[in-house]
Simulated scan of single mutants.
Amino acid sequence: MAADLVGRTVTVSAPATSANLGPGFDHLGLAFDLRQAATLRVVASGFSAEVTGEGAEDVPRDGSHLILRSAVAALADLGCEVPGLALTADNVIPHGRGLGSSAAAIVAGLLAGTVLAGADPEPERLLGLATDIEGHADNVAAALLGGLVIAYPGPDRVGAVQVPVHPDLAAMVYLPDTSVPTSEARGLLPAEVPHSDAAANAGRAALLVEALSRSPELLLPATEDRLHQRYRRTAMPESYDLLESLRDKGFAAVVSGAGPSVLVLGRAPSLTHLPDQPGFRRRNLSVGTGARVEDRSAVV
């Protein structure tokens, strides 16, 4: 079986994502039109990664690369082994900025491995594998399915549902020059929070689904958070100051994922009034689709 796979090649892509979106901690995710593409080829021996673009200088070039590890995990789950894989990727999603670069890599690798094995990419299976690798489902669910996603724990494995997004919804992200590891940002969160804060976030998260799907005029109150953003301020003081400044001006700003990027949600015309900010570069984003196979012509 392994020898039969040598030479098979597939190109896949997965979107950048933002998790939490303010109050939806670990359960809400939104995909964008910024996409990570990757080409994987089964080779006779060895694992290698040829990577350019964002964060290329910091990622491994061997089988420990996250896309390769994820592809191998997908193959193993299907009972397949390969003698080697060669990855080619041009990274476009900033690393360590809260835009789901790891989730995109995991989902891209899982999708590629599944296609190389000749199996159907069943979303439920891929979501379970992706969550096992990532540790939580919000980003990987959005990267896999696209659009706005609610991830939730099921009896055996995590589940996810897509929610229609208002056609006028757009986003602007402020990207800082520095990164913050997700593990560091998570380490700042308290083990317990006041009941009043938990109750407030539950209400805001429910309101946020309404705001993103049908009522963008509610985005400012809907993005209020008490569970995680303020606790991370010490790791990203400039980002938190920017967030507060933007919200004071009436913009629905949140920390993107674990940060330190600041995401602003709203109707596209309103985002044209956003100010520049020293130490940050801005990028316009639109809601994106989920992971997909870009080229499977070499898969037989």
Rank of each mutant, 00 (worst) to 15 (best):
A3T: 10
D4I: 00
D4H: 06
V10R: 14
V10M: 11
V12W: 10
T17D: 09
T17Y: 13
L21V: 06
P23Q: 10
L28E: 07
L30A: 10
L40M: 05
F47I: 05
S48F: 01
V51K: 09
T52A: 14
E57W: 06
V59T: 03
R61Y: 05
S64Q: 14
R69I: 04
A71N: 09
A73Y: 02
A74W: 07
A76P: 00
L85W: 04
N91T: 07
P94N: 12
P94Y: 12
H95Q: 15
G96A: 11
R97C: 13
G100M: 05
A103K: 10
I106S: 07
G109Q: 09
L116V: 01
P121E: 12
R125F: 11
T131A: 11
H136L: 09
H136N: 09
A137I: 14
D138T: 10
N139T: 09
A143S: 15
A143L: 09
P153I: 05
R157G: 07
V158D: 08
V161F: 01
Q162P: 04
Q162W: 00
D168G: 06
L169S: 00
A170M: 09
M172K: 07
P176G: 07
S179C: 04
P181C: 13
A185I: 08
A185G: 14
G187I: 12
L188Y: 03
D197T: 10
A200K: 02
N201I: 02
L207V: 00
L207M: 15
E210F: 05
E210D: 10
A211C: 00
R214W: 07
S215G: 00
P221S: 14
T223E: 02
D225Y: 10
D225E: 15
R226G: 03
L227I: 11
L227C: 06
Q229G: 05
E238T: 05
E238C: 03
Y240G: 05
Y240W: 05
D241F: 00
L243P: 06
L243Y: 01
E244R: 12
L246R: 08
D248N: 13
A252C: 09
A253E: 02
V254P: 11
A258S: 15
V262W: 10
L271W: 02
L274R: 12
G279S: 13
N284H: 14
V287G: 12
G290A: 11
R292N: 06
R292I: 00
V293H: 13
V299M: 14
